[in-house]
Simulated assay, not measured.
Amino acid sequence: MQQIQLPPLVDGQIYLHGRINKHGDVEHTVLVAVNDKRLPRDLQREWAKSVGGVLYNRIDALVMYNEHLELVKPEAYWTDDDVEWDPAYAWCQYFSHGDQIIIHKSAELRAVAVSRFTI
């Protein structure tokens, strides 16, 4: 069986997952930081950029829920995914019970920053 070559990580980073993108390349996702300060989503996006990442998406959130639950509190965390039918809302991940729901972007939630890259 062929294995994916894991990329080198910087101290404090945690490898979350790799997936094959539409071009056939392996896209790696690495956890950069967790922000337990509650902020509106736009401010959490700014925070993620300030630590060298982006907010994680709904797929990353499911991986975290299933494989890295110890890294977050049993609270709600923003994702970077907008709600397609209402731009005032975005998706969040509840780590207390695993639900992903939509909530107004002005709500103050925690956040996870990730880095994505191909090698």
Rank of each mutant, 00 (worst) to 15 (best):
E70M: 03
E84S: 14
L6S: 07
I4F: 10
S115F: 10
R110N: 12
D42P: 09
E67T: 12
W91E: 02
M64I: 15
L9Y: 03
G24R: 02
W78V: 04
L71V: 06
Q3K: 13
A113L: 03
R19I: 02
D60Q: 06
I101E: 14
R58L: 04
A111T: 07
C92D: 13
L55W: 02
V54D: 11
K73H: 11
L9C: 01
Y89L: 12
K22M: 06
T29W: 04
S96R: 10
K73F: 07
R110G: 07
R41F: 00
Q93Y: 01
T29Q: 13
R58I: 07
L62W: 08
W78K: 04
S115N: 08
L39D: 07
L39M: 13
W47F: 01
Q13E: 15
A111Y: 01
L62E: 15
N21G: 00
H104A: 09
H23T: 10
F117Y: 12
F95E: 00
D42F: 05
E27C: 02
L9F: 02
N35C: 13
F117G: 02
L9Q: 04
M1R: 09
E108H: 13
T29S: 13
E46V: 13
L55A: 05
V72L: 05
E67I: 02
D82T: 12
V26W: 14
M64A: 06
R19D: 08
V30Q: 04
N57D: 15
R58T: 15
T29I: 07
F117N: 04
E67N: 14
H97C: 04
Y15H: 07
A61S: 13
D82H: 08
L69W: 12
Y94D: 06
P8A: 09
D36K: 07
K37T: 14
E70V: 02
L39G: 05
I59K: 09
A48F: 03
F117H: 12
W78P: 11
L69P: 09
T79E: 00
E70G: 05
V26R: 09
S96D: 15
E67S: 15
Y89N: 07
A33Q: 06
K22Y: 12
D86R: 08
D81W: 05
G12C: 03
S96I: 05
E46K: 14
S115I: 11
L31I: 02
Q5N: 12
E27P: 00
D42V: 11
R19G: 03
I102S: 13
M64E: 08
I20D: 10
L109V: 01
A88N: 15
E75M: 06
E75G: 03
G24Q: 02
N35A: 03
P8Q: 10
K73T: 11
W91R: 01
V26K: 08
A76C: 14
R45Q: 08
I103H: 12
V34R: 01
V72W: 00
